[in-house]
Nucleic acid binder design. Structure first.
Lengths: 213, 213
DNA sequence: CCTACCGATCGGTAGG
DNA sequence: CCTACCGATCGGTAGG
């Protein structure tokens, strides 16, 4: 029954990060105790402090990794070759793949925007606000180019950005929370939702545009 | 310094409910302690148990009230006279007014969909799932009628429902969380976002519809 | 990586 | 509505 001396298929540190992400996502920051996490790792609570100096630092590390992983997966399609429609759809698909593979990461990012008070709350808010601003800046450039290319209705880029963020956040919310066991349902309809979204912002050379002329 | 014997402009029970809603919304269920709530009410912790037998019951009562108030405000426009476009937009506006006036109520509904484990989690999930199913049923009827009336693209009603829920949840997310101090910004652009959303699902008698023919 | 332990705080009760 | 108090658990430390 005794395992070989090497840490096994994954290091304790990796198992700690995975267990903590799961529990933070499932119960929130306060609801996931260090004892719970230790139990899931298969170790006693004080041992966790060999890897992270505090619960706050553990959470911050997971949050940073979550954001970085998310960006690494989802951003390339936005900068790729192709029409703006294809690029944005690629960005959406990569985001949804990431959400499916690492739901904990996305839930941690979403719950971090509220529910955290005091010092930790401020650190988290600053981190998220920075990334969000950077993301919005990139999207602004993207949509300005899409308007110039005639692919998208000539609305102000910031409105198109808000429209996209609204759509994406709505999709993420449903993917993660609202459906529960029926998540597959929603994913099956993603392309139809995408079509309706794009239909709303696409340019219409063949008719007068009453909204944004 | 001593107040008159009547409970004041609002009863202790009302102040308790208000304080609890604020704290639950700000810090989550676990993060808002009964001591915190009591402090905000201006009373000692054990006194709270004269009004509610437990923290769980207090939360459940707030959650139920939040849902009921939300529905009471937002549903009438859906059933009113007028075009489907006007009715849905009225429903959106009433929802946003409610969100602005009672942000705690909306945050409590949103946080309740996750972050709650055990017995309470199941009770909350059952309550929310019931209301959500009822809401989707009503929306299904609404969109089926909108398609029949020729106001909306002839897509399957359930897709139109999902599209609306995605839009609404995205809007609520931004209104509540993503912007923080800049909530006013977002509200100023709500009508433009609505236009882009409706543009996506509206029927187009003047052209061939490539998406849903 | 462990046992043993810290002060603080949790939800809740007894009793008035 | 209060004081006094309960067992349980919190994040974290000492020391090995």
């Amino acid at each position: 029954m005794s395992l070989p001396p090497q840490p096994g298929p994954t290091s304790t540190r990796d198992r700690l990060r995975h267990a903590a992400a799961e529990l933070f996502a499932a119960r929130g920051y306060v609801g996931a105790s260090m004892s719970d996490i230790a139990k899931r790792v298969g170790v006693r609570k004080p041992s966790l402090y060999n890897y992270y100096p505090s619960k706050e630092e553990l959470f911050m590390d997971l949050l940073k990794s979550s954001i970085d992983d998310w960006l690494a997966v989802s951003q390339p399609p936005l900068e790729a070759e192709g029409s703006c429609c294809e690029r944005l759809q690629g960005h959406l698909h990569k985001t949804m793949e990431f959400t499916q593979e690492c739901p904990h990461a996305v839930v941690i990012c979403r719950m971090a925007v509220n529910q955290l008070a005091g010092d930790l709350g401020e650190r988290v808010h600053a981190l998220l606000a920075g990334h969000r601003e950077e993301y919005r800046r990139r999207l602004g450039t993207f949509f300005a180019a899409a308007v110039t290319a005639g692919e998208v209705s000539p609305a102000p880029p910031e409105i198109l950005v808000l429209s996209w963020l609204t759509f994406l956040d709505g999709v993420l919310f449903h993917q993660l929370f609202a459906i529960g066991k029926r998540g597959a349902d929603y994913r099956d309809h993603l392309d139809e939702l995408w079509q309706l979204f794009w239909r709303g912002i696409a340019s219409r050379p063949e008719m007068e545009d009453r909204s944004f002329a």
